[in-house]
Simulated scan of single mutants.
Amino acid sequence: MTTITTKDGTRIFYKDWGPRDGQPVIFSHGWPLSADAWDAQMVFFANQGFRTIAHDRRSHGRSDQVWENNNMDQYADDLGELIEQLDLRDVILVGHSTGGGEVTRYVGRHGTARVAKVALIGAVPPLMLKTEANPGGLPIDVFDGIRKGTFDNRSQFFKDLTIPFYGYNREGAAISAGVREEFWRQGMMGGLKGQLDSIRAFSESDFHEDLAKFDIPTLVLHGDDDQIVPIDASARSTVRIVRHAVLKVYEGADHGLTQTHQDRFNADLLDFING
């Protein structure tokens, strides 16, 4: 396996596909998945001449399952170490869901000296949790339910989660058993402790200050029928903070649009990168 070792001794697995002299595109996955969630995008963009990289977040996929430091700051620092150890520059950062939070926190903590553009896809910033200052967020009960479902019967919970994740509970949806099984497989590769910690990381991390530091072209892409990360409290709030951000809304699209709308998404992301 291809890994880097972080300063705290954690091994982070990553894939590195395409020409080594191509502009690097780094893909950060959502919860509770792994780098495998980006395979189709990695092949597509590698065939376009880009160097495509995706890593398994700590305690997810093939990376080390650690007891501590499963938090957004550390996720961002792990991404930073990956970029630095591979000596990547002029990077395109693409983050989906929790991965969008990871990418956003990276910019907040490490700046954009090595980054050319950012794409936030169905991403959790600026804040998922409902608070007095964030009335459009989701109540803590929602995330407590995710914690309980994951702890009590993780396998069944992940299977059930695929239904709203991919919009399979909507009329006329074309349900793919293979997509559902692949989501389950990736989720079950991760460690329970790290996945439970990650629920707090993606739901309670406040990214307002991180987003205010964005100074590069940013694509914010979201489905307006996203049942996991509602668009009003996320994408539509993000573009009010990030200067010159471009918001692209997929009408009727779900949270897993990188798969359910794969060809359209790949083309739109390519247009953004080349533009």
Rank of each mutant, 00 (worst) to 15 (best):
K193G: 10
G223K: 02
Q227F: 10
F207I: 09
Q227S: 09
L219R: 03
Q262P: 00
D197S: 11
S237P: 03
L196M: 10
R240Q: 11
D225A: 12
D206V: 12
A233M: 15
G252L: 02
V242Q: 08
R236D: 06
L257A: 10
D254Y: 00
E204C: 14
V242G: 04
A235I: 06
R236N: 07
R200D: 10
A245F: 03
A245M: 07
L257K: 00
A235F: 08
F214S: 01
V242K: 04
G256M: 02
F207E: 12
A212D: 06
L192S: 05
L211A: 09
L196N: 07
A245C: 07
H244Q: 04
D225T: 08
T258H: 15
G223M: 00
D206K: 12
A235V: 07
D210M: 03
S205L: 13
S205M: 12
S234N: 12
S205T: 15
I216W: 11
K248C: 01
K213Q: 06
A233C: 06
H261V: 04
K213D: 04
I241A: 13
A245T: 03
A253M: 01
D215Y: 02
Y250T: 00
A201L: 13
S237F: 14
V242N: 07
S237K: 13
I228C: 08
Q195G: 09
Q262I: 03
S234V: 01
D232T: 13
S203C: 08
E204T: 14
G256E: 05
E209C: 06
S198K: 14
D226K: 03
D210T: 12
L221I: 15
Q227Y: 09
L192K: 09
T238R: 03
H222M: 00
Q227E: 11
L192M: 12
D225W: 14
L221A: 13
V242M: 04
G194L: 14
A253V: 05
I199G: 08
I241Y: 11
I228V: 14
F207Q: 09
T258M: 14
A245Q: 08
P217A: 10
H244D: 11
I231F: 05
